[in-house]
């Protein structure tokens, strides 16, 4: 009657077909770019795409969990900025790199926790709570840096962004690690299962004894943590923490999650789709650059292609019963 094999993500045929449709759109895009540009399908360019996708990819991991609970985190870009400028300035003050990194990650998680507490304790809707955090954290970043970029960071720190291990850039390894950890968390742990239950039906979750407030605070904390980690990689690569760093990152992250098939309604989707979604968006960026599309048109084309991708895999899914 039942398979003894535990199935990781709550997924049925529809979700499978959707994901397959997404992969199909992705392959179609790759094929088109291969035909249009001979520089696309080269090892260097593919690695480049992966490297470009790491920042948004990591932010999207946290965003996926938030959206799975039925929430949204608009503050990721600002949280990233405040966390990394504090971390970078600690390094400039001569603090150990390890301490600065931990401080930045901890600050990201803390700001996320504050989002979560605003939502659970003060009962402010996620959209408003994180919109508030978006402006507050950005304002604090500008005050803290007095509008000046922080540069000239220690080499040992810059390794996070520029190092290579076994031929693979460190950012790519870190991103893979984050996705893997996130996938294990969502599919194998109790709290991961609670995230799906909470997103599916918050009332039923509470009545079933799910610690709904704790889960909510946790997912926003994870989102803040992921944002800070992505920011550290970015700063390490650029050797510069600009006060306006991370602006608009929420859009790319939300796009990756939603293109990846995670439902805004909560309780449906997962990291596999998000990974594909993040790669699709980055491949598109890369392709538009290779084809010398004017930056003015880039945004428009990107939006249209994302909409087409969504339509395509919607066409693949059979009508729900």
């Amino acid at each position: 009657m039942t398979s003894s094999q535990p199935v990781a993500l709550p997924m049925d045929r529809r979700a499978f077909v959707q994901r397959f449709g997404l992969a199909f759109s992705f392959l179609l895009l790759m094929l088109a770019l291969t035909l249009l540009s001979d520089r696309f399908l080269t090892a260097a360019n593919l690695i480049n795409i992966l490297r470009q996708a790491t920042i948004n990819g990591i932010v999207s991991v946290g965003m996926t969990m938030v959206i799975l609970t039925g929430g949204i985190d608009l503050s990721v870009g600002s949280v990233l900025a405040l966390a990394v400028t504090v971390g970078a300035s600690l390094m400039k003050q001569g603090q150990p790199v390890g301490l600065a990194v931990v401080a930045a990650l901890g600050l990201g998680a803390l700001l996320g926790m504050i989002n979560g507490l605003m939502i659970t304790k003060a009962r402010i809707p996620p959209f408003i709570a994180t919109l508030g955090m978006l402006t507050v954290a950005r304002g604090l970043t500008l005050m803290y840096t007095q509008g000046q970029p922080i540069t000239g960071l220690p080499a040992s720190f810059r390794w996070i962004g520029t190092g290579v291990v076994g031929g693979i850039p460190v950012p790519i390894l870190l991103t893979a690690l984050v996705f893997l950890a996130g996938w294990v968390f969502l599919s194998r742990t109790r709290y991961g299962a609670y995230i799906y239950l909470l997103g599916d039906n918050p009332t039923a979750a509470r009545l079933a004894g799910v610690p709904t407030e704790r889960i909510t605070v946790l997912v926003y904390a994870i989102s803040g943590f992921c944002a800070a980690l992505a920011g550290l990689i970015l700063v390490a690569r650029l050797d510069s923490a600009q006060p306006i760093i991370g602006q608009g990152y929420e859009f790319n992250a939300i796009a990756a999650v939603v293109v990846g098939g995670t439902s805004f309604a909560g309780g449906e989707g997962g990291l596999g789709g998000t990974l594909l979604g993040a790669l699709l968006i980055e491949t598109l960026n890369n392709g538009l650059n290779l084809l010398n599309v004017s930056p003015l048109w880039e945004q428009v084309v990107k939006g249209v292609v994302i909409a087409l991708a969504l339509l395509l895999y919607k066409a693949f899914s059979p009508p729900s019963r």
């Binding site: 709550p10 194998r188 109790r190 609670y194 599916d200 009332t203 039923a204 004894g209 449906e268």
Partner: peptide
């Protein structure tokens, strides 16, 4: 109030068990 319509029978029926039947947070 009762069901998680989009989730599996396993997690619907086992929602309360998750706390008891997991080790170090792993189900």
């Amino acid at each position: 109030q009762g069901l998680f319509l989009g989730q599996s029978v396993r997690f619907n029926a086992g929602a309360g068990l998750l706390e008891r039947l997991s080790r170090l947070g792993f189900i």
